[in-house]
Design a protein around this nucleic acid. Structure first.
Lengths: 339, 339
DNA sequence: AGCGCCAATGTAAGCGCTTGCATAATCGTT
DNA sequence: AACGATTATGCAAGCGCTTACATTGGCGCT
């Protein structure tokens, strides 16, 4: 059976569709008699308002689009949680989509969202997000999370990955490490680049206190962390100096690294100290527990949504200042050296 | 600046709105000249189709609504992944919402989705989901995941929690345990009840081989698992027999239990063997690695979506048979007894 | 030249809803 | 009793799009 429309309800209650609409929406200029008649009719017909139609008429969807590289996994899950909680608090709904690391998909997702959302919350760590910028409907409020999309008109919330990288190195040095290595995220990832830059800067600052340093490129997966360490160990077999501290570009790779080190018979942190990035929940369960830089991923999502919601609430306010979140060093066993 | 509408494009290209629509949508009955004019106009005006309006006209949204108790955390994240992958493969979009354990919120979410989605994928583990049933627009295709909503007209995909509970007990017995305990999920959760029922049945079947058994109610959180074990230990201090095997209603609680046992100075699995449920990713990283019942959460999501998508594709086909997924026992260190 | 035919285009209705405006009904005032 | 002020109600336009149907013009044909 066709679903009931407002028209059906109006007919059933023997009033005009306008009155039916008013009654349903609880406007006050409706006679009590009419209201009850309409509500009864609605109940009888199991009428449920058609959200899409209403949105069209109101030019308001009460939905915001969330575009993430992926919509599952520890990290993104936390973002979603932050966004969800904040959205719920404001009566907004979420249309989520994952771009699966593909700019084309991201563009497609945004197109599909057009006309279904009031604003966009986007996390797009691709270095070349120019294509994205091109499609953004000029008029759609947009907030970016940890991304580097040009001139996002409405605000951005970013992580100071550079500072995080520096912190990691400084911590390792303070622990007495003198031969550092870095396992970086993919070249194409903006955040990965910033972390690497922080690493490089801090190393340069330390100057001669540090022996030569190597950098290995992973892709943020556990497996790639494992592989990079294998490379390092192989190089050491070949005579290269073994590092005594590794700053790994994210926790998942650090977990892989840990695994590879254990397998190689090395002790963490005594032979090699390890620092990750992100503080995913699993980090504290690793053996040894993983030192890392906590980003407050939940906060990232929450504040991102709030920024957007505020922009929506007063559309002609100044675009809010960008928010920068500084990672916080969390020291656990993987980097605590007795030395 | 107002966003461009199809009408604007039509004017710019000096054709009727109908032709503009046809050109944009790539229909073939459009002269080449017109098509290029329209496409140029669209590009010039940065026209982006309004998805909402299109949906209204087509009575098709290409979006499916996903309603979960929560939309983050290991477990749900995996479901989302399954759904996401399958949806993407079919060109469908996802409108997700969390009900936060509250039937009212779930109802609200469904109402909000009405008219924005073509079908609903719902996981609602509340035992009393009657209220939910009441709101479902009769006409909206609906597939339930691991839920017990009455007569869901279009299919359901369920986990055989009962069988899982039995498996867990049988495994513990095979390991030589003779004094079992169960830490259950909340009374109000359908899945928790089924697992408990499986536990009880298997225990009854084993009969006199088993000493008295205790059941403790948690709420699926790590913390509650911790607490329940504390209770058990306290009871043991009071003279009650200590169990030598515990079947825990889900992995998160099992993790908490593990923690509490360690803290109590007991060895797992030698003093007490432990089996969880779900096989969340963290389970294998626990110390000792957690034995558990793998549900294939990803599959749950994927197949749920496919069921729904199929129903959407041929609306008058027979409602598909419900799919039952049997949990698989994953034996890790936490239950491997030498005895 | 005149016929029908087909392809390209336009017209307008309609998807389900909201809302400004006009109309009708009710009331209190003097 | 007649007036305006105040409500309640209905009419109809419009949100941005699709599409059945009508219209137009060009073509080949006899």
């Amino acid at each position: 059976m066709r679903r009931a429309t407002l028209n059906d309800v109006a007919k059933e209650a023997d009033v005009s569709i306008a009155s039916a609409s008013r009654a349903i929406n609880g406007l006050d200029n409706v006679a009590e008699g009419v209201r009850t008649r309409v509500l009864e009719a609605a109940a009888k017909l199991k009428y449920i308002p058609h959200g899409g139609a209403r949105s069209l008429a109101l030019a308001r969807t009460n939905t915001i689009g969330l575009l993430l590289p992926d919509i599952y996994g520890e990290f993104f899950s936390e973002i979603i949680r932050g966004v969800d909680v904040a959205a719920r608090a404001r009566g907004l709904h979420l249309l989520v989509s994952g771009s699966h690391g593909d700019v084309k998909e991201a563009v497609a997702a945004i197109l599909a969202m057009s006309g279904r959302v009031d604003g966009l919350l986007v996390m797009s760590p691709f270095v070349d997000s120019q294509d994205l910028g091109a499609v953004f409907p000029v008029s759609l409020p947009l907030v970016t999370i940890a991304s580097r999309i040009g001139q996002s008109g409405y605000g951005a919330i970013t992580v100071d990955n550079y500072a995080g990288g520096k912190l990691a190195v400084e911590h390792l040095l303070a622990q007495g490490c003198t031969r550092l290595a870095h396992i970086s995220g993919p070249e194409s990832n903006f955040e990965a680049q910033e972390r690497k830059r922080g690493f490089a800067t801090a190393v340069a600052t330390a100057g001669s206190k540090i022996a030569p340093v190597t950098i290995h490129e992973g892709d943020f997966t556990e497996e790639s962390g494992f592989r990079c360490v294998k490379d390092i160990l192989a190089a050491a077999d070949g005579g290269a100096p073994l590092p005594d501290g590794i700053f790994v570009g994210n926790d998942m790779m650090a977990l892989g690294a840990l695994f590879a080190l254990k397998e190689g018979g090395l002790s963490v942190p005594d032979d090699i100290a390890l620092v990750g990035f992100d503080d995913v929940p699993i980090a504290r369960f690793a053996q040894p527990a993983l030192s890392t830089l906590r980003v407050g991923v939940y906060e990232l999502g929450r504040r991102g949504l709030e920024l957007l919601a505020d922009a929506l609430a007063n559309p002609d306010a100044e675009p809010a200042e960008g928010i920068v979140i500084s990672p916080e060093l969390v020291i656990r066993e993987s980097s605590k050296r007795t030395g």
